[in-house]
Amino acid sequence: MAQHNDLGGKLITVGEAVERFVPDGCQIAVGGFTITRNPMAAVYEIARRHIKDLHLVAHSNGQALDLLVGAGCVRRLDIAYGGNGRFAPTCIRFRKAVERGELLVEDYTNNMMSLRFLAGALGVPFIPSKSGLGTDVIAREGFPAELRGTEGVPVHKLVVIENPFADGDDQVVLLPALTPDVSIIHAQQVSTDGTVRIRGLSFADLEQCKAASAVIVTCEEIVPESYLRLAPDQNALPPFLVDAVVLAPYGAHPTACPYVYDYDPAHLNHYKAVAKGDESWAAYLDEWVYDVEGWDAYLDKVGGAQLARIRANTVAGYAPGLDRR
């Protein structure tokens, strides 16, 4: 194939994408889940540009969440889970920021957050759930009252009502829809017309993108339109929902991109160690974010041999036998 086109002007650099779609103070959703398919090339760029006061809306986006919080980019957080699997049962910089009162947090659950994105995607103002009745997820509000009804924060965290279609003793939880200003995801393939293909689990990426006002897709490769049209049942998002496409090989590192590379246990263990201390954390940010020119330079620092070690078996989707201790 010839070199791809510019996707009608949508193909831009990660710097241009962040510049255009991620202003200070915006509400942002990022794709992926804990240690998989986080859009890290974009996340590092957001941190590098010192974007401030973000309202991050997340279900369980572990690594992206922790880096954005740790770099001081986030002011408010709707969240279900701030953990990173066995690498960090609680994300370390997230934990410190909450304990120091540096972050406003509204706790929901994974069911609630994914439904809130779905509601935003469907254009309905709220959506019911049977999850959380009788718990503090429902009884306690994290955001202060004066924030309610301003800057995209709903008037109530949620509302419990009796099921209007039944007779008594059948309470349901109404959850406010989410419509983020921008959603950023990382995909394995985008075609030359802007169609997106995700392999493996899609998490809530599709609902997040359909609910958002703008969508940035970073990707491993750009492939011919005719190729993705051969198996349309495998495709995740149509071109008309995608505002910007960024070619970012290894753009989810150190999280996994199934069928292309595994998560990087060496980097995640290093991260876990340095995130524990404020000085070592500041040094990490200098070394891996601020003093790095861009994603190419970041990958050079990770090193070719390490990237080869985590390369996925293209059938299994991960790196069999990878030392994950």
């Binding site: 992926g32 889940f33 804990t34 240690i35 998989t36 398919r37 279900h59 369980s60 572990g62 990173n84 699997g85 066995r86 690498f87 994974n110 069911n111 994914s114 439904l115 779905l118 493996g200 689990l201 899609s202 998490f203 809530a204 990426d205 599709l206 609902e207 996994a256 199934p258 069928y259 595994d262 998560y263 996925a312 299994a316 989707g317 991960y318 069999p320 994950r324």
Partner: peptide, 26 residues
């Protein structure tokens, strides 16, 4: 065949009946 280290580990996707997302899982 290999133990996952998180519920999003690619090992929970490998050779599965199917791969979906959160809304479907619930």
């Amino acid at each position: 065949e290999e133990l996952p280290m998180a519920v999003a580990d690619p090992r929970v996707m490998a050779f599965a009946n199917l791969n979906a997302g959160l809304v479907e899982a619930f």
